[in-house]
C-alpha cells in the first residue's frame, strides 16, 4: 500500500486556547501508481491531510503510513507542492529543482544531471538559467513539479496546484501534469476544490465532509485517458460524476 490513513483524527489548539478538530476518524488507502483526488469544502482539513503525510506534524490519534511505514517526520518518500510555487526567487530554475536533493549529499554533478532530466520532462528545457520572476505562473508550477519529481518520491502530494492559474493555463497544465505523472508512474494525491478537475485527473475521488472532515464517500472514476484530461473533458460522463460529488457535498442545500 502506497499510502494509508488509519482512523486519523487531528486536533489543533487555536490561539484562543480552544480545541479545533480539523479531521475526524479519516480512513482510506491509496494503491501504488494510483491517482486519487480529495475534494471537500474549504476548511475541512484537506491541507491537514497533506501536512501529516509529509510528516510536518503528527495525527492526534490514528496512524499515517507511507509504503507501510508509519510517518514519524519529514521523509524522502513524500514530495509535495502547493498552490504557491515556493520557488526560491534568488535561485535560477535548475538550482531550484536541485533544492530538494541538497540535503541528501548527492555530488553536484549527478545532482545537476538529475535536475536537467526533470526540467526536460516538465517541458522547461532552455529555461534552466531563468529566474522564477521571468517565468509565467504555469511555467513556475511546472518547475515546482520538476523539483518535486527530482527527489524521486514514492508519493506526490498536490495541494490545489492549479487554483491560482487562469482557466486556459489551468487546462493545459492539468494535461501536462497528468501526462508527466502518468509517465513517471508516481502515486499521487491531489487536493482540490474543483470538482471537474478531480474527475478529469483521477482514478478515484475521496469526498470529505465539512469540518471536522470525514470521508463521506469514495467515487471510482471509470473513464479512460487518465493521462489526458483534455480528452476526458469532452466525455459526457464527466458531468455526471461531478453531479454525483455535488450531491454528496449537499451543495444545493447550501446555495441559499
Amino acid at each position: 500500500m502506497a499510502l494509508e490513513f488509519r482512523g486519523v483524527t487531528k486536533q489543533f489548539t487555536t490561539n484562543s486556547g480552544a480545541v479545533l478538530t480539523a479531521i475526524r476518524d479519516v480512513t482510506f488507502k491509496v494503491n501504488e501508481g494510483e491517482f486519487v483526488s480529495v475534494v471537500g469544502p474549504s476548511g475541512c482539513g484537506k491541507s491537514t491531510l497533506l501536512s501529516m503525510t509529509a510528516g510536518l506534524y503528527q495525527p492526534t490519534t490514528g496512524e499515517v503510513l507511507v509504503s507501510d511505514q508509519p510517518v514519524t517526520g519529514p521523509n524522502d518518500h513524500v514530495g509535495f507542492m502547493l498552490q504557491k510555487d515556493l520557488l526560491l526567487p534568488w535561485r535560477n530554475i535548475v538550482k531550484n529543482i536541485e533544492f530538494g536533493l541538497e540535503a541528501r549529499g548527492a555530488a553536484p554533478g549527478p545532482r545537476r544531471e538529475r535536475a536537467m532530466a526533470e526540467l526536460k520532462r516538465c517541458h522547461l528545457a532552455g529555461f534552466e538559467n531563468h529566474y522564477p520572476y521571468q517565468l509565467s505562473g504555469g511555467m513556475r508550477q511546472r518547475a515546482a513539479l520538476a523539483r518535486t519529481l527530482a527527489i524521486d518520491p514514492e508519493i506526490i502530494l498536490l495541494d490545489e496546484p492549479f487554483s491560482a492559474l487562469d482557466a486556459q493555463t489551468k487546462l493545459l497544465l492539468q494535461d501536462s501534469f497528468a501526462a508527466t505523472i502518468a509517465e513517471s508512474g508516481k502515486t499521487t494525491l491531489l487536493i482540490t476544490h474543483d470538482l471537474s478537475e478531480a474527475v478529469l485527473m483521477s482514478d478515484r475521488i475521496l469526498v470529505l465532509s465539512e469540518r471536522p472532515g470525514t470521508v463521506l464517500t469514495e467515487i471510482k472514476v471509470e473513464l479512460p485517458h487518465r493521462a489526458h484530461p483534455l480528452k476526458r473533458r469532452v466525455m459526457p460522463e464527466v458531468g455526471e460524476y461531478a453531479g454525483q460529488i455535488f450531491r454528496h457535498l449537499k451543495l444545493e442545500e447550501k446555495a441559499i
Partner: peptide, 14 residues
C-alpha cells in the same frame, strides 16, 4: 514564508 520553511523541512534540511 512558513510554507517555504516547511518545504525545506520536508526535504530533510537541517
Amino acid at each position: 514564508d512558513r510554507d517555504l520553511v516547511n518545504l525545506a523541512r520536508a526535504y530533510n534540511l537541517s
